[in-house]
Design a protein around this nucleic acid. Sequence first.
DNA 1: GTAATTGCAAAGGATTTGCAACAGT
DNA 2: ACTGTTGCAAATCCTTTGCAATTAC
Lengths: 172, 172
Amino acid sequence: MSVASIDSPPAASPYLHLFRRYLKQQGLPVTQQREVVADVVFSTTEHLSVEEIEARLKERGERIGKATIYRTMEILVRSGLVEDHDFGDGFKRYEHLFGGQPVHDHLVCTHCRKVTEFRSPELLRIQDVVSREHGFAPTRHRLEIHGLCAECQEQGVTVAYNGLTCPAWDVA
Amino acid sequence: MSVASIDSPPAASPYLHLFRRYLKQQGLPVTQQREVVADVVFSTTEHLSVEEIEARLKERGERIGKATIYRTMEILVRSGLVEDHDFGDGFKRYEHLFGGQPVHDHLVCTHCRKVTEFRSPELLRIQDVVSREHGFAPTRHRLEIHGLCAECQEQGVTVAYNGLTCPAWDVA
DNA sequence: GTAATTGCAAAGGATTTGCAACAGT
DNA sequence: ACTGTTGCAAATCCTTTGCAATTAC
């Protein structure tokens, strides 16, 4: 535990200045709140929800209203520095683009809700081929594979299937 | 316009009996409301929201509470006959599995919100390969490609890019 | 008859918005 | 100084839930 950490500055993320630049570019004020919110998001590779961002702000001793967090996240997404996701747990989650691979997708465990990232160059090819076939101009994609992660399987978790036992084939 | 249509039954979808069977299998009552709601969903290949389902029920002269629609959709999804989607417009949308290809994904136009389906067998391969690499047991996937559809492009629509003009590369 | 569903209205949870006080340029 | 942001609380949106009356089996 280094003594320096006691009163050193809050270790601003190296990506923060990109956000500052964006704000200036757009003629928007660079406020303390926006900087701190952005720094929280840039300081982790997790997929944070607004509530979680609020919690981390509290840990830092910052008292920032939820509304401001929502408003800042909107700008961050528009800036292209952050992406929003909906993993189906009821709220949006945010992820900055400097974590791992620039383009990646997600494995979502339906039991423990863990999210793992993966990269698939072939997928980009599929995106191009399919788009061309439909005259579609793609800007981004989103692929989620839902299922059970390795840990949950080891712990013997199984998915209860409540669907029809005898599927659609006998449409008599 | 055929005279027969005037007092013929409401042309029950051929898939309705699968839902009836599911209800019986589960020991659940087969109610009129459940049948009509399911029939509305089975009668189109569109991706309907609860509000839209309610509207079509009104058109048919049926007066069914929203709560019942929500509760029925829950059962339909659990039965495996219907899938729910979140295309990012604020509410869940539902789609039965007898429309086109059994497994398919979606092109979502960010301008006119039109959703086009496509099929990609390679994608299933990717799902398998990636899952195996991570010891993941996949149950389903969801791929959406967002962008501009052909019609919107013809009409000269372009996506306004509001992101950083000079991207991330110069992280000094 | 019994147990489950229905429908209404009220509750719920995430997100948004209105507005007076305030901070950034 | 002027314009835009902040923060609170109230409003909004979709969705869920409680409960008395009703329906399926």
